[in-house]
Amino acid sequence: MVEKATRTEEAAPRATTERRFEVFVREAADEPLEHVGTVAAPDPDTAHEEAGKLFAWYARDVWVCPSGETHRYSTYSLAGEGDEVEADSGGDSDDRAPPEPRVYEETEGTPEVGDGA
């Protein structure tokens, strides 16, 4: 009997300014698609355009998939067991709360945090 791996969902967002798209490329028709990172873009067409600028010299096929709609399950966790991300499969994951939100308190010497000016 094969022992099953225990994976947890890594559900933290990938976006910092705008949506991100996972990029997969294939050089030849008989090769598997390879994940080569993400691009920031507002929509799939722009994501393809951005990915094309980076990989057009190489790739026959370029696939882009919204990072926020990609569910990632892994045995790996950056900070180990004690800091694993709580699985949350609902909605657009780029809008989800961080797994361990920091709390900022305005302290002496940081009077302008959150000022916005």
Binding site: P13, T16, A79, G80, D83, A97, E100
Partner: peptide, 18 residues
């Protein structure tokens, strides 16, 4: 493109140390 607020999913202290 820094802004006035944090964004969801910033690396925590534990993740930063890792």
């Amino acid at each position: 493109s820094a802004d006035t607020e944090t964004i969801p999913g910033e690396l925590s202290t534990a993740e930063g140390k890792a």
